[in-house]
Design a binder for these strands. Structure first.
Length: 325
DNA sequence: GTCAGGTTCCGCTCCGCTTA
DNA sequence: TAAGCGGAGCGGAACCTGAC
């Protein structure tokens, strides 16, 4: 490390980082000051001190507020990570000193949320009754950025193509299989070994373009030389999807686990059925994803290990699994 | 001219260090 | 251990700047 970098590292304080981050979030010195419970002049002085220390402007002053400079943006990004780490450290200390499991924040795409997260929580609850899981279910495009921002401990999903995979520890699980849901009295509900070609004239409920499930369906149709069927509704909401197929002849592709939960032999409803396709449609494998530069909290580690154990026992990791160190 | 937002100046309080 | 000193941090008031 150079002398000037060493000098900056030695003199930069946590309030400096908090202010830089607050400036990034609010775009105003006065608003940042309010957010940090300090006066605006004090924040202004602290900002000048940071700029003196760095030897570069942190932000560009304007009549309606401030805009972070390149230096400011870089510092704010570091500040976000450092303050998140500190918050995580606090959580670790509380959990360890209390001698009990605390809270885990995780994200999952639909299938593993049903098939892995819920059973893992049930198993952990017997040994750790105080454990609490905050589960965000969504698409990988929304979940993985939240992992990077420090809002989630880990994600069960896929790393979006635009993100650098070296930022993550990735442990692939086996591929997801697609099921097609319809209402129970749908004209095709009782047909067996249906070819895709028999379904192209119906309306479909799809996930947004670019999502793995949508791409798997697009690939299946085009590989059979079929045109994509008419999409009447695009939604990531499972409830909206169910409402649509329940009220119409629409067909909705979902993860097999979700279909089993709803329409399986011991499923939750008799109003929904899964079509019997004559082929197996697979989505690219999802994975256990953690941030490469961050250790899991004790509780998150416990949850992660329980899910891995479930996978090992019941399903198995994909052959090319990359084990965490 | 008015308003919103930032800077500067001044004084107060708190805290750590030094010294008797 | 207590008193004195100096620096850091903060708030209030006044002032500056640019947009409308």
């Amino acid at each position: 490390m150079s002398d000037s970098a060493e000098r900056i590292a030695r003199r930069l304080k946590l309030p400096h980082l908090r202010l830089t981050l607050a400036l990034a979030n609010t775009g105003q010195i006065s608003a940042a000051a309010r957010a940090l419970n300090m006066s605006q002049p004090a924040a202004s002085r602290m900002l000048a001190e940071i700029e003196r220390l760095l030897g570069a402007p942190v932000c560009v002053r304007g009549p309606k507020g401030v805009e972070l400079s390149e230096t400011g943006l870089a510092l704010a990004e570091r500040a976000r990570r450092i303050l998140t780490e500190l918050s995580e450290a606090g959580r670790d200390v509380v959990e360890i000193s209390a001698g009990k499991a605390g809270t885990v924040y995780l994200g999952a795409v639909t299938a593993p949320a049903i098939d892995l997260v819920v059973p893992a929580l049930q198993r952990l609850k017997s040994a750790h009754p105080t454990i609490e899981a905050h589960v965000e279910v969504g698409t990988s495009d929304t979940l993985v950025p939240r992992l990077l921002e420090g809002h989630l401990d880990f994600v069960i999903g896929r790393v979006p193509a635009h993100l650098d995979v070296s930022a993550f520890d990735i442990r692939p699980v086996q591929p997801e299989v697609v099921s097609l849901l319809v209402r129970a009295d749908h004209p095709m509900a009782h047909e067996s070994r249906l070819p895709l070609a028999a379904l192209v004239d119906y309306e479909w409920v799809m996930q947004p373009a670019g999502t793995p499930l949508r791409r798997a369906m697009e690939y299946s149709f085009t590989s059979h030389g079929l045109a994509m069927p008419r999409t009447s509704l695009i939604s990531t909401s499972f409830l909206v999807l169910l409402s649509m197929i329940w009220r119409s002849d629409a067909i909705a592709p979902v993860a097999e686990e979700a279909a089993t939960l709803l329409a399986g032999e011991r499923g939750m409803t008799r109003a929904i059925a899964a079509l019997d396709l004559d082929e197996r449609i697979e989505i690219m494998p999802y994975a256990m994803i953690t941030r490469a530069d961050r250790h899991l909290s004790p509780t998150a580690g416990l949850f992660y290990a329980e899910i891995c154990a479930l996978i090992e026992r019941g399903r198995g990791f994909a052959p090319h699994a990359a084990r965490r160190g």
